[in-house]
Write a protein that binds this DNA or RNA. Structure first.
Lengths: 149, 149
DNA sequence: TATTGTTATACTCTATAACTATA
DNA sequence: TATAGTTATAGAGTATAACAATA
């Protein structure tokens, strides 16, 4: 049979999500990438800038400017790692944490509206499938450096 | 509960698909957008350049250059529409049709490997959900011009 | 007056290389 | 010699405006 390319199917949904998120993120004075950075930091596992760049699939060079902006906006702080003074540990400020939570709340509301088109079972399966397909080190796709490095 | 943003979930999968497609498309001497254009044309519903740009969510100005390349590569042809001579009807050549089919075959193989991580039921639900969420004129998202116009 | 396709231009985003300071 | 972070530069990608031909 003749299904459309997965790339098109996923691309269409992703594009739609991004367009829906853009005004919400902007309303909180954040760029898209700024929100992505705050999200990664909010989940807590990230420490150094390099690890953050990797987690975001973002270029480490560009991350410098992005963090400059977030820092001067008082949303994150960079502190030297005492164990290795080359490393800069990035952390959310309290303001940053609240800002992220506020944006996320708005985004979640938008997503819930979108997902209302699916029934409960579909939502569950979708979430599982997404997590599965997005996994990096799948047995079928040997370590490939995520673009933007 | 605390699921990651849909934007991240979908974005991760989409990015992964694109990176997997890139070398396949390049192996057939096509750009990503070139393949997208051929795909839309292959599905047959598109006629004018403007309709093609819309179907691809691509800028009509940039489409000119893209079609120039595809045309000089002998993959598409532009003919004036006799009913409205402002309109240029875009069509695949036989070479273009075969080129698209060849690339699509490779992409399909890659996708099948990827989807092997899911069971049959999950695949079915996923496809349905993707089609549903990607639909443009959902009752909840009033006509918004897709970016790139 | 509006629309299709085109061209020209400015701008933003991204990739590459090279530098510094530490290790 | 290698790595984390930084800076500088060049290139690709994208958006905007304006134009000619046709309606």
């Amino acid at each position: 049979m003749d299904r459309p390319d997965l790339g098109k199917l996923f691309g269409d949904v992703t594009r739609r999500l991004i367009e829906a998120e853009r005004p919400l993120v902007a309303a909180h004075a954040l760029s898209m990438w700024g929100y992505v950075a705050l999200s990664e930091l909010a989940r807590g596992s990230v420490v150094s800038q390099l690890a953050l760049a990797d987690a975001m699939s973002y270029d480490k060079n560009r991350l410098v400017t992005l963090l400059d902006e977030l820092e001067s906006a008082g949303l994150v702080v960079r502190q030297a790692d005492p164990d290795d003074r080359r490393v800069r540990i990035v952390a959310l400020t309290e303001v940053g944490r609240r800002r992220h939570a506020a944006v996320r709340r708005d985004i979640r509301a938008m997503e819930d509206e979108l997902l209302a088109d699916l029934d409960e079972r579909e939502r569950t399966v979708l979430m599982h499938a997404l997590a599965q397909l997005g996994r990096r080190h799948n047995r079928r796709s040997p370590q490939r450096p995520p673009r933007g490095r």
